[in-house]
């Protein structure tokens, strides 16, 4: 019973809601018929990946830049440290070496190390 009433009510309401508009139908039909169906080729895929690689190259380099910079700094620090250690190590023997060098070259001992 209720469903019949409901159906009746819906049927009464339906016509004004679904009022046909031939011009609107015509306009929408023309719109739908003008739909573009582009040919999607693999070329687009190739272009995208090529562009991505081109774009990614500097960013990839930028990604490695801090690591490269760090490595360069570490290597420089290591070299400086080695040099300091070597010079410190050779510094203990300097008087002897300097004496030898001075004697060999026949240069005057200015700082008086030979005494």
């Amino acid at each position: 019973m209720a469903s019949i009433l409901q159906r009746g009510a819906t049927e009464e309401l339906a016509p004004p809601v679904a009022e046909a508009d031939p011009m609107m139908d015509d306009a929408m039909a023309s719109l739908r018929s003008s739909r573009i169906e582009p040919e999607s080729t693999a070329e687009l895929e190739i272009n995208i990946m090529r562009a991505w690689r081109m774009e990614d190259r500097p960013s990839r380099a930028a990604r490695w830049l801090p690591a490269i910079g760090g490595a360069v700094l570490a290597a420089t620090a290591l070299l400086v440290m080695i040099q300091l250690l070597l010079s410190a190590g050779s510094g203990e023997q300097m008087p002897i070496h300097q004496q030898d060098a001075a004697q060999a070259l026949g240069t005057p001992d200015l700082i008086g190390m030979s005494e």
Binding site: I36, L44, E45, I48, M49, W52, R53
Partner: peptide
């Protein structure tokens, strides 16, 4: 991963291109 990018492009390119064209 570029291979995964290619797969995503392959899946979406047609509909995306059609939507942009329209």
């Amino acid at each position: 991963d570029e291979a995964a990018m290619t797969l995503l492009v392959g899946r979406h390119r047609r509909r995306l291109l059609r939507a942009a064209s329209n």
